[in-house]
Design a protein around this nucleic acid. Structure first.
Lengths: 203, 203
DNA sequence: TAGATTGTTAATCGATTAACAATC
DNA sequence: TAGATTGTTAATCGATTAACAATC
């Protein structure tokens, strides 16, 4: 299978948001409506939808339920993705409680920190565990993905450790460019870049 | 001036992270080194750098200080960007305390919520204010940008209100596709899309 | 029917990569 | 000098847009 490009993944999630929140009471939606609200070209929308294997009706557009399910199928929302969060600071604790993750197949199973004063405390229903336990818990639960939300000064050191624990995907919320073996996939979450993109006209 | 593309903005912030955290003790860095660590083509790196107006030395590469400052200049880190956060839930409070914002010129001036039980409480050094006060405070402080971190059910309603208050940029952390007049710039922060991009090989 | 909309091909646009002369 | 690296042009690749026949 040809991997779907990042841009297409991004647009498909936007279509999904539209279907879930904006057009949840409609039966049909056309490529023109989607294109209009998201400021895209209508033929681009049709191509994206064709990629999900959905067929429209010539006069009515696409059935919203079909389309929503097809997007979920294409993006793998029903495949559960087990995740551990490392770093129980502001961001880590916010992400533990991020309710939307569940809808997209992301299950946060554990929250780790190094700080003795935090270990043992609860964040929502999650207990903060000592980072030492990651190795054990990740192998028991087959966790391959870590959300990294530690201070920049600790980022590389903690990365080295989680890689040793067998972690294969690191969603990096620190500003540090991490070095890892080629078998590990890093995804750098560049929150500030996103802000600057919004403001670029004023730069 | 031709606006810099989103992709270039993203790469420039990554180069900046490298200079700030990884190569902060080096005097020179070559396009090959940057390309290697970020898995990019070296000529792409040189083009990006040329865009910032930095000249390298044929044998040594680029001076790290020059390059870092030029990126900051190009991306406008020293222009202060005043921001209000609307929604004092987990995410809103995490973002208020996000220390890195300052380094990029983002000043969070106020935090608003609708919930009477939250209003008046403190988050770090910030007081949670009633959303009714946004109009006043944004016009007094010339705040044109809002970070929207409210529940999906309130997203459009609150958006309508902040637009009425004169807000021109909305950084949308909700999953709802917002409708606004064309004079307002929306930037949809699609956190889950980002995760799915990382995991796409496993889809 | 006439109008709206799909599905898809061809054309265009923009971004990346390859190549290489210049030169420190 | 020889080697490394820039700066930049030309070639390629991929993504978007335009166009339109098919058809409900």
């Amino acid at each position: 299978m040809t991997a779907i490009s990042n841009k297409i993944i991004n647009r498909l999630t936007l279509y999904h948001c539209l279907l879930k929140y904006t057009f949840n009471d409609k039966n049909f939606i056309s490529s023109f409506e989607i294109a209009d609200i998201l400021d895209l070209d209508d033929s681009l929308v049709r191509k994206d939808i064709a990629l999900c294997g959905v067929l429209g009706r010539r006069k009515n557009g696409y059935q919203t339920n079909d389309l929503k399910q097809a997007i979920e199928q294409t993006l793998g929302f029903s495949q559960r993705k087990k995740v551990a969060i490392v770093g129980a600071g502001n961001l880590g604790t916010a992400l533990v409680n991020y309710a939307d993750f569940k809808d997209y197949g992301i299950d946060v199973l554990a929250l780790f920190d190094n700080d003795p004063s935090k270990i043992g405390q609860k964040v929502g229903s999650n207990l903060i565990l000592s980072l030492e336990q990651l190795s054990n818990i990740s192998s028991k639960n087959n966790i391959k993905t870590v959300i990294l939300a530690v201070p920049p000064t600790k980022a590389q050191e903690v990365t080295n450790y989680v890689v040793k624990c067998g972690i294969k995907f690191i969603w990096n919320f620190t500003p540090v460019i991490l070095k890892t073996p080629p078998t590990v996939t890093i995804h750098h979450e560049n929150i500030v870049s996103s802000f600057l993109q919004m403001h670029k006209e004023t730069m």
